[in-house]
Measured scan of single mutants.
Amino acid sequence: MIINNLKLIREKKKISQSELAALLEVSRQTINGIEKNKYNPSLQLALKIAYYLNTPLEDIFQWQ
């Protein structure tokens, strides 16, 4: 199972779901689904999230 800290990191950086979704060219619902662990992002999307949040990938997504 993958645990993610996306919501915590996104809120710490004061970025809304809508703003992050626009940067990543995905829907706000996609961001919401990832934050709620409804599904895991593709590797490409995970890397883009880490890039736009300027945060190491392993700080956002962790195996458990």
Rank of each mutant, 00 (worst) to 15 (best):
Q17D: 05
A22T: 14
L57N: 02
K48H: 07
I9F: 11
I49Q: 00
I15L: 14
D59F: 08
M1E: 05
K13G: 05
E35G: 00
L43F: 12
S16L: 09
S16C: 05
L23A: 15
Y39L: 14
K38H: 14
A21Y: 02
L45P: 01
Y39N: 09
N37G: 11
I60C: 04
A50P: 01
L45M: 11
I31S: 00
D59H: 13
K13A: 14
N37Y: 07
I60G: 01
K12H: 13
S42A: 05
N40M: 07
L53W: 03
R10N: 01
I9W: 06
I31K: 00
L6E: 01
Y52F: 13
I9P: 01
E11G: 06
K48F: 04
Q17M: 14
N5E: 05
Q17L: 12
Y51N: 14
L53P: 00
K38Q: 14
P41S: 03
L8V: 15
K13N: 13
L45C: 06
N32R: 15
N4C: 04
E35Y: 02
Q17H: 04
S27N: 12
M1H: 05
W63F: 10
I15Q: 05
L24Q: 00
E11F: 05
K14F: 11
L53D: 00
Q62G: 08
E58H: 13
A21R: 03
L53V: 04
L57E: 02
R28S: 14
N37L: 07
L53T: 04
L8I: 14
R28T: 15
Q44P: 11
G33R: 12
N40S: 14
L47Q: 14
Y52M: 11
I31D: 00
I3G: 07
A22S: 12
W63R: 04
L23C: 09
I49L: 07
E19R: 13
Q62T: 11
L43I: 13
I3T: 14
L8W: 12
A22D: 13
L24S: 08
K7G: 07
N40V: 11
I2S: 10
F61C: 02
I15D: 00
Q44K: 11
P41E: 01
S42P: 15
T55E: 11
K7W: 07
Q62V: 11
Q64I: 07
E11D: 12
S42N: 12
S42Y: 04
P41K: 01
Y51R: 10
W63Y: 06
Q29P: 11
N40Y: 07
R28V: 15
D59R: 08
N37E: 07
I60S: 01
A22N: 11
N37D: 09
N5L: 04
A22Y: 10
K14N: 13
N32A: 09
P41F: 04
N40W: 06
L47E: 15
S16F: 04
A46T: 05
S42D: 15
A50D: 00
K12P: 02
E58M: 09
E11W: 06
Q64P: 13
Q17F: 03
Y51T: 13
Q62A: 09
S42C: 06
N37F: 08
L43D: 06
R28A: 15
L6C: 05
Y51A: 13
A46V: 05
E58C: 09
A50G: 05
Q62E: 10
Q29Y: 12
E58Q: 11
E58D: 14
I2A: 11
P56S: 06
L53M: 07
L45S: 03
F61K: 01
I2R: 08
Y52E: 09
I49W: 01
R10D: 01
N40Q: 10
W63D: 04
Q29A: 13
K14D: 13
L20V: 03
S16E: 06
K36I: 14
A21F: 01
W63E: 04
I31G: 00
V26K: 03
L45E: 05
I2D: 05
P56E: 08
Q44C: 11
S27Q: 08
N37V: 04
N32I: 15
D59S: 09
I34P: 00
I34K: 00
Q17V: 14
L53H: 00
T30N: 05
Q44H: 13
N32V: 15
G33V: 09
N40I: 09
Y52T: 11
L24A: 10
L24C: 10
T55N: 04
I34L: 07
Q44Y: 09
I60L: 12
K13I: 07
P41L: 07
E35R: 01
K48S: 09
Q64S: 13
L6I: 04
L43V: 13
Q64G: 09
R10M: 07
Q64C: 09
I60Y: 01
T30Y: 14
Q64E: 13
L45Q: 07
E35F: 01
K12Y: 15
I3F: 13
K14R: 14
L47G: 12
E35H: 02
Y52S: 08
I60K: 00
E19G: 10
Q29D: 15
N37W: 14
T30G: 03
L57P: 04
N4I: 02
Q62H: 08
L8T: 14
Q64L: 07
G33Y: 13
R28D: 15
L45G: 02
L6W: 00
E11Y: 06
M1K: 05
I9A: 07
S42G: 12
I31V: 13
I2K: 11
E25Q: 13
M1R: 04
K36L: 14
P41H: 02
A50Y: 02
I31A: 02
G33N: 14
K36A: 15
L53R: 00
T55S: 09
I3C: 08
I9S: 04
T30L: 15
I15P: 00
I15W: 07
L43S: 09
L47Y: 12
T55V: 09
I60A: 02
N4G: 03
E25K: 11
K36R: 12
L45A: 03
K12R: 15
N5P: 01
L57C: 05
E35L: 02
A46P: 00
I49K: 00
L20M: 06
G33M: 12
L6M: 12
S16Q: 07
T55H: 08
L53F: 08
L57Y: 06
L8G: 09
Y51H: 09
P56W: 03
E19I: 06
E58R: 10
G33L: 13
I34V: 06
A21N: 02
K13D: 03
R10I: 03
L8S: 15
L24P: 00
S42I: 04
A21S: 09
I31N: 00
L8N: 13
Y52N: 07
K38G: 07
T55K: 06
N5K: 08
N32Q: 06
Y39D: 06
W63V: 05
K13F: 07
K48V: 04
M1D: 04
G33H: 14
K36S: 14
D59Q: 12
K36N: 15
D59P: 01
L23H: 13
I15R: 04
L24T: 14
L24Y: 00
E35M: 01
L57G: 02
P41T: 04
A50V: 05
K7R: 13
N4W: 02
I60P: 01
K36T: 15
S18P: 08
R10G: 01
L47C: 11
L45K: 02
Q44D: 15
N54W: 05
L45R: 02
Q44I: 09
E35P: 01
K13M: 13
E58P: 11
I15F: 10
I31R: 01
A46L: 04
L45H: 04
R10V: 03
L53E: 00
Y52A: 12
N54A: 12
I31T: 01
K38E: 15
I9N: 04
A46D: 00
Y51K: 11
I15T: 05
P41R: 00
M1A: 06
F61T: 01
E58S: 13
L57V: 12
Y39R: 11
L8D: 15
D59G: 07
E58L: 11
L24W: 01
S27W: 03
M1W: 06
A46M: 07
N32H: 11
N32E: 15
L20G: 00
K12T: 13
S16V: 04
I9V: 13
L20D: 00
R10Y: 02
E35K: 00
T55W: 05
G33K: 10
K12D: 11
L23T: 08
K14Y: 08
A50I: 03
A22P: 02
P56L: 04
M1L: 15
I49S: 02
N54P: 00
A22R: 13
V26E: 05
L47F: 09
R28N: 15
R10K: 01
A22L: 11
R10E: 01
W63T: 05
Q62R: 12
L45W: 03
I15V: 15
N5G: 03
A21M: 03
K13T: 07
Q17G: 05
L20T: 00
L45V: 07
I60W: 03
L53Y: 01
A50F: 01
I34C: 02
N54E: 14
I34A: 01
S27I: 02
N5H: 08
Y51P: 01
V26N: 02
I31E: 01
S42W: 04
S16H: 06
N37Q: 08
D59T: 08
T30V: 14
A22G: 12
F61S: 01
